[in-house]
Design a protein around this nucleic acid. Structure first.
Lengths: 145, 145
DNA sequence: TATTGTTATACTCTATAACTATA
DNA sequence: TATAGTTATAGAGTATAACAATA
């Protein structure tokens, strides 16, 4: 019977609402680039985070089937945000990388997200900001849940 | 240029991954009741939280269109977890309430979620648990984001 | 035999639109 | 007029299955 767990459960419920996720991603991606929307976001930022990566490996990391990654990536390649190179170690695989335009878009998205969070925490005392950032990062570490 | 916002942005990205949401809700609802899955969860817990409530009002609160709430609620009524009563103040509206079976299921789901969070925080110092719960609740308060 | 990328297909969830009844 | 609930329809996003190529 934990009051902390109760409060966390409730807060988690808010974040996991579809409205929160799609609303946040839609506002982040709106107007940044024609080919980037809430669905393309995880693929694009995944490639940014994981460097040259195959569709199968990226899918495993971001929780999408390789077929979905393949289709999204193809659209981002057409749009000039991703590029493909042959994997020198495995002729079956194709590695996905950001183009310079892709890097520009990822950077813009990242800045928007950080700016939105900064604005949201504008009136928080610095100590609380720091504490929350540290504890939130710890909370999402792999493990239970 | 905020280190805190950077860390929060990254943690948020983890929580908003589809895998996290569907995985959590699937594990919570698995085996609890045939009619309850990840899609029914928000409707059922919404009725639990908001008491007798109309489909339109519930939809507004949980971020779903009333048509979706209507369909999900109908299934939950058929399954014996929800019951409908006429709104004495508005003959257009139908109020959704939990049946005793619905209360049992909601209680079980709630216990599972709290238990999962408690287990996840098992090795956290009590002070950190309390701090995180408080700051996390504050973070999800309506506003920017 | 297993895995990669790709494509066609089906499934799940949701929003939109249209309808009737009531405010 | 506006809003409630309902239903049919369409849309978005994803997973599954099957294929050829490579491991």
């Amino acid at each position: 019977m934990s009051t902390a767990a109760d409060a966390i459960a409730q807060a988690l419920g808010v974040l996991l609402q579809r409205r929160f996720r799609s609303g946040l991603y839609a506002s982040l991606t709106d107007g940044v680039h024609d080919a980037v929307d809430a669905a393309a976001y995880p693929v694009l930022s995944g490639v940014a985070r994981l460097g040259p990566v195959s569709a199968a490996a990226l899918g495993t990391q971001i929780g999408l089937d390789r077929s979905v990654v393949s289709r999204r990536a193809a659209a981002l390649v057409t749009a000039g945000l991703l590029t493909t190179t042959a994997d020198p170690d495995d002729a079956r695989a194709t590695l996905l990388s950001l183009t310079s335009e892709g890097r520009r878009v990822v950077k813009a998205l990242r800045m928007r997200l950080v700016a939105a969070i900064d604005a949201h925490l504008a009136d928080w005392p610095e100590g609380q900001r720091r504490d929350f950032a540290r504890l939130f990062a710890k909370f999402v570490e792999p493990g239970t849940l």
